[in-house]
Amino acid sequence: MTVSAIQIRDLSKTFGGGRSLFGKTRHEVRAVKSVSLDVERGETLAVVGESGSGKSTLARMLVGLETPTAGSLLIGGKEAGALRRDGPRAFGKMIQYVFQDPVASLNPRKTIRDILETPLKFLCCYETARRRERMRELLDAVQMPEDTLARYPHEFSGGQAQRIAIARALAAEAEIIVLDEPVSALDVSVQAQVLLLLRDLKTRFGLTYLFISHDLAVVEAISDRVAVMYFGEVVEMAPAARLFANPGHAYTQRLVASAPRIRRE
């Protein structure tokens, strides 16, 4: 039996809480409430839910940007707490993250070369010549021209910036990638192209995706299985085709019914 890419058991995250100096209890927000799920290698698991349902908090815990309050988290069979103790490099080599707003995730004062070089230098520890070669390969993989390297992030459109952000995630050579609403900020035609790119990259590099989105149709197009989050809990998890054809939980039914459809008749 192979090890799951991600194994989550009873994972919880609470913000605030505790007592203040004068013994008053602080306001407590339970963003994620004892979530358990597995992502197999080579699979795309989608997490859907509305704003405030805790899906981004879950994603940030997976890549080590937040510390879970309780529960266990295994990434590629390794305990996340141990990875965190080994520092950001250990985490970055296992799992990478693509942000929702591609332009905000690129430092406005750095060239694309600086941005792409960082993971190659810190995570892969490559020589200068090897780094240059890898950068060319990465840009080729995300279908961007080579002169991209000398430019600054604001010179690119949203779709192009997202391609660069994806290239940065690939640069770490991690096999698991968490995609946090990677196409919601993009126009539909650009969105379709980025989705295609993600699908191609997955087969080419044997990646595992955790795909977070609020758009059910996008999720259906790209994922194998879907987990529905509602107020910090996973209320339903099923293969994509079955979930949307025959939603079980009342909230999933409402979500599917609310999705706008193009009526052609």
Binding site: V188, S189, Q191, A192, Q193, L195, L196, R199, D215, L216, A217, V218, E220, A221, I222, A240, A241, F244, A245, V256, A259, R261, I262
Partner: peptide, 24 residues
Amino acid sequence: KRLIACVPELGMGEHFLKGVAGLF
């Protein structure tokens, strides 16, 4: 035509990406 073809819809599943691939 192309804009409408790029809109994913519920029920299309992975056929959507196959269809879109032909557009580009």
